[in-house]
Design a protein around this nucleic acid. Structure first.
Lengths: 118, 118
DNA sequence: TCCATATTTCAATAATCCTTGAATAATTGA
DNA sequence: TCAATTATTCAAGGATTATTGAAATATGGA
């Protein structure tokens, strides 16, 4: 992930509705959610959710695919991981202080995978 | 770090000049940098840098302290770490896929501290 | 006190972003 | 083909954010 992409991702995540959408899509996993379902759960109008989904897609944080009449949106895990990595490498360069708490969280989130890097 | 703070932090980091400033301040460590030095290095006008510094401070990502005629700005490591943590916990809830790459970076950044959490 | 230095604040303008509702497009089933 | 469903696009507006240069504030030294 380069700086341009990171800036776009930060911008995309700096809006309440969009952060909410990302949360829902991460939880819903590979199945994703239809635009209508997202609008309903986030309690915003169809055209408004469409606007925000476009922003998130422009930032590369989500992807879409049509399924019959619905358009299914899914979170881009790789991009989200890439953003965390950008933040850590960009901030962590010589500063373990910032990364240490993150390492702790990482250990909690993925105890098995963690083992790989010992 | 709560959602309000995270939204403010994402917003603050979504601007090129401000991202540049954060980078410089993280590198400069506890000594920090004077506003004028930041303006010079970032190649922006004094009044413009002042505007962006205020934004970063409002987001809690930096702090200031007067030293004689200069005002010294320093990065808030705790907040930066908190933002990474927010991103991981908020995205990682049940999704090690996203956190695994971050865990790898964390291991690289702070090999010694990492040991604490085994 | 007066001047120079370092920085912020202010006002005006430009640019970007968000929301709303109406119009449009794509798909499916009767 | 026609109607219903699902979603996007568009235009208008209001709101927020960014940039600029001039004026104001704070500090320290002659």
């Amino acid at each position: 992930m380069d700086q341009r992409q990171a800036l776009a991702a930060f911008s995309a995540l700096s809006q309440e509705t969009r952060l909410h959408i990302i949360r829902m899509l991460v939880v819903s996993g590979p199945d994703g959610m239809a635009a209508g379902a997202i609008a309903e759960k986030a309690e915003v109008s169809p055209s408004n959710v469409s606007f925000h989904l476009k922003e998130l897609e422009r930032a590369g944080l989500i992807a879409q695919q049509r399924e019959s009449r619905s358009i299914i949106y899914t979170a881009n895990y790789e991009r989200l991981g890439g953003l965390i990595r950008f933040l850590m490498e960009d901030c962590c360069g010589g500063n373990p202080e910032i990364c240490a708490p993150a390492a702790k969280v990482a250990a909690c989130c993925s105890p098995k995978i963690e083992g790989k890097f010992q």
